[in-house]
Write a protein that binds this DNA or RNA. Sequence first.
DNA 1: TAAAGTGTTGCAAAAAATGCAACACCAGAA
DNA 2: TTCTGGTGTTGCATTTTTTGCAACACTTTA
Lengths: 300, 300
Amino acid sequence: MRHLLVLKYIEKIARTGSLRSAAEELGITASALNRRILGIEQELGVEIFERHPAGLRPNIAGEILLKYIRDQIADMDRVKSRIADLSGMRAGHINIATTREAVAYFLPALIKRHLAEFPAVTFGVNIYERGEAEISLLDNTNDIAIVFEPIHLREMQTVYTGTQQVFCIMSADHPLAERQSIKIYDCIDFPLLLPKHPEGIRLVLDATAGKIGITLEPALESNSLNLLRLMSQDSEALSFSLAINLRPDLGKDRLISVPLDMGGVHAGNLVAGHLRGRTLPIAAARFLETVNKNLSISFS
Amino acid sequence: MRHLLVLKYIEKIARTGSLRSAAEELGITASALNRRILGIEQELGVEIFERHPAGLRPNIAGEILLKYIRDQIADMDRVKSRIADLSGMRAGHINIATTREAVAYFLPALIKRHLAEFPAVTFGVNIYERGEAEISLLDNTNDIAIVFEPIHLREMQTVYTGTQQVFCIMSADHPLAERQSIKIYDCIDFPLLLPKHPEGIRLVLDATAGKIGITLEPALESNSLNLLRLMSQDSEALSFSLAINLRPDLGKDRLISVPLDMGGVHAGNLVAGHLRGRTLPIAAARFLETVNKNLSISFS
DNA sequence: TAAAGTGTTGCAAAAAATGCAACACCAGAA
DNA sequence: TTCTGGTGTTGCATTTTTTGCAACACTTTA
């Protein structure tokens, strides 16, 4: 709830005891946070925090306000819960069709978060080869499709469409590791670990190579993206990954990722949507909205 | 309070029933307001207004939200007054509910004097029809009620109660002008200028007349007490006024006032108080005490 | 059919929030 | 003392958000 933001800021400061620590936890700057507080204090005409060298501590006015804030946040939660009850997004089953690329880290995290808010919702996640996910919407086998480079876009009502940057994954001590970005041309001197053909990312890579008149000759082909990535470890071999599929803790495997400059070739589209003309059950619609929001934020 | 802005927007729309009318009252554009609503609805994942050709009407989710909003706004007011209290009880906002009879000369003078002593206090004076002022205490719209002949006395904690002498106002050269007091019986031969019905003083006059078996037939009815008074000027017509509403400088308009002997009928009560069971903010409590003191001194 | 009301949306301008960097201050350690 | 590491604050350029204008699509009423 956006209108509670400022209140949550205040609450966080009261809990951490200092502007800077609160700011860090909130993911904003101390200065921004500070000005928010100064603004509130000006609105109230009273200071709500005592300024100590060690940080901020609520004064009596602050304590009164904090009580209000905590109540208000709790009340809002209750309101949201009641609204969720009567609009039916509380319960239901959601079947999701997706491709291997999209599913690795993004979807599990998202489902987990959604489940925290709507525990009674159940999920089915079904992985398809390129092109098949969209088809599966036709007979309502699945409610939502999240796919990379869809083939049957006509059948879909898309809610989110966005390009996905391709990253090249390599060992941390690889000759190319220092680069800000690399071109496909730079890659051909090293062993290439590529996904098998119908995979969307392979398509994009082949197109990029084709543009400059070369053919990619993979040292290893597999449809296990994880296998490909691990093969890069401690070798000169290169593998590739979409932004959405990039593991957050690559460093732990002594790997790093470098964006691939595709030289004007259209980076592939990631698409989320449902069957055209179908009105989704509320639970599914709600989740799709969450998907859309998160994709938009993560890959802008 | 800035963070309540959006909430107040919603509340306003619910009250006016349409985007455009609400926008106008709020001093913004319909489009801006509309986007605010769309934003909230997206945040909640649910629509909160039904779209009718005639305008917007809250749906069930909206009603739930509205309850929350009204509570939060009221709570915030309470917080602000509590905070004002502890900053030396010299500041605060006082909302006063009253009826037309009580407000003309007494209240302005009192507020003026109070303001001289407590310049940081701000006032809101709201005039209601008979019976409505007390009701307005219930939702904390007003802190203090000063009313003549209240209907809903149960809801009120009265601080002052006292009868109000009724005066008959007439031209200075009126045949009755020399009297020490007059009876209602004396009046019926002259044109009567009476307030309209729900007005408390009219009630008292009717009761007095009823006791001796006559009905008052007004030459003019109005709910502007000032108009009635001025109509008495240079004519034989009689108007009536409560002691509290008696203008100090009647002589300037060539008018005089003569007490009305009501022949045993209970003169109406003037009551000042607040919502039963509520502890007033200090600023309001303080003003109510001033009201009490002045009423007690003036009409003993 | 025309008029007057409704909500909605694209686009450019205005306003608000933010991050960066520097500052001033204080407590405790060297 | 002087230095270090912590605090909150502020000016400025930038980014993000909000807003108003105008036009649109739609429904009800005259």
